[in-house]
């Protein structure tokens, strides 16, 4: 089948998509956007988190066909040119990135949190990121990164 989808503001089309393919596979293997990650492909780790019409979803759980005529925003679509989003910037600065395989999903999840809750408390951050596994950092620096991004966004706003 053919899938038409807007990804990071661009109208994209993919042909010969097999019925069982996930949005994650579509993005990674057909549209050349491997930023969203494939750590479990079971909806358990959050590494594939993308916005689907402004709602964060696990792209591995969404069938490619379901994205037809909808808008997807991936980690690749967060920076403005050379300028990182404050969340991305904070992740690098705080040391929240080790292997980085969890990072794209966490960055999208944290981005969404700060859109909804500009000054989240620690328990709120923990709750919002509870669906994103990280095996390297023990999460401390991820929390630090989100706090830092929140304070920057506040200062910048």
């Amino acid at each position: 089948m053919r899938v038409n989808v807007t990804v990071n503001g661009e109208q994209r089309q993919a042909d010969d998509v097999w019925e069982g393919e996930s949005l994650l596979f579509l993005l990674r293997e057909r549209l050349g956007l491997p930023g969203s990650k494939n750590a479990c492909e079971q909806g358990e780790c959050g590494s594939c988190t993308v916005y689907l019409d402004d709602v964060p979803v696990c792209a591995c759980l969404v069938a490619a066909g379901q994205a037809e005529d909808r808008e997807v925003r991936t980690v690749e679509g967060l920076a403005r040119g050379d300028r990182l989003d404050p969340v991305q910037e904070a992740f690098v600065e705080a040391g929240a990135v080790q292997c980085g395989f969890c990072t794209p999903g966490l960055v999208v999840a944290a981005h969404d949190l700060l859109d909804r809750v500009p000054k989240p408390s620690d328990p709120e951050i923990r709750e919002a990121l509870a669906g994103n596994l990280c095996r390297c950092t023990g999460y401390e620096k991820i929390l630090e990164a989100v706090r830092l991004a929140a304070s920057r966004k506040e200062a910048g706003a």
């Binding site: 491997p34 980690v75 990135v97």
Partner: peptide
């Protein structure tokens, strides 16, 4: 490699094509 990783542009083994 931090910037590449937060932008989703760092090439992991599973990203190769």
């Amino acid at each position: 490699d931090g910037n590449l990783k937060v932008r989703g542009e760092f090439a992991y083994a599973s990203d190769l094509w």
